[in-house]
Design a protein around this nucleic acid. Structure first.
Lengths: 156, 156
DNA sequence: CGGAGATCCATGACGCGTCAACTAGAGATA
DNA sequence: TATCTCTAGTTGACGCGTCATGGATCTCCG
């Protein structure tokens, strides 16, 4: 009866905010993924890889570098690229300078697909998020996100 | 050269906000899942199911109702419960009133696990999110989240 | 040179999630 | 009752992601 609560549960308001936040991320990622899939036949993972590949002028990058760029584990990338090769979105190229290494290169088909997909994705993001808030609100959302990410990365 | 951009790309600021938001959700969900796994041996899916089961006094619910409660597809729940039964977190019980139906019931072990896990999870959420912002900021995050979720659910 | 250790990538096992197909029982109707 | 349809839940295939392991090659140092 004495002693402060050993576990500081969330207040009702906090609970509501937290739930809303979690729910948003579930709904939004599901929705964007579904749009991407139905409009362009791409998964979020496909999309991320293809965007990263178009960001580099040569259209090909070493596995390592790509993994770092998009912050993926190396084996995740390896699995993903295997699947994408089967659909001719990317190709794998040997690396002359390093016998262990390899390049991932975007294919012509992959380029066509991402060029069609990207604008649709942007439109969806705008419609569902950016334009759903005032510019001030959206900026604030960005600021709070950055603040939290910062905290998370500083944590033990 | 004329004609407005057919695709309204994000401005640099918008891009930054959007990226920060996406990054937050990736980092945060990864972090909370990792904590849950290492502290309690539970996945986020396990946790959600167990919480829903402790929320109901009898500790057992029909598959349908549980699926609706946590907003999951039925087959997702079916797969998840199968995996959880193997670890003795829940049990499956036949339904006398409806021969097709079945109950999911939390096991004694499941109850012990969730009761140990929940406070640790709350502490993590507090540490990583709630207490990382001012109360006003956190409330605003909740408000914006709800506003966006609302928009998403209203969309076609 | 030659061997130790590090680096690069692949793979297999497994959990998670979706979709489509399926089984079995319940309910309605003639 | 016979059948037709709807509902509850299961299952299999497959994509996604992590972890642990493995094999090839590079690097460095004696």
């Amino acid at each position: 009866m004495n002693d402060a609560e050993p576990v500081p549960w969330l207040s009702d308001d906090e609970q509501r905010s937290w739930r809303a936040f979690v729910r948003l991320h579930l709904k939004l990622s599901a929705r964007l993924a579904a749009d991407l899939q139905s409009h362009s036949g791409l998964s979020a993972a496909d999309f991320e890889v293809l965007v990263a590949l178009t960001d580099v002028p040569e259209g090909r990058v070493r596995f390592q570098d790509l993994a770092k760029e998009i912050d993926w584990e190396q084996s995740r990338l390896s699995h993903q690229i295997r699947r994408m090769i089967k659909r001719d979105l990317v190709t794998r190229e040997e690396c002359a300078e390093d016998g262990r290494g390899a390049y991932v290169a975007i294919s012509a088909h992959g380029r066509a697909v991402i060029e069609a997909a990207a604008p649709k994705h942007v439109v969806a993001v705008r419609r569902l998020v950016v334009d759903a808030l005032t510019p001030e609100e959206f900026a604030e959302l960005g600021r709070l996100s950055a603040k939290l990410t910062d905290r998370i990365e500083r944590e033990p």
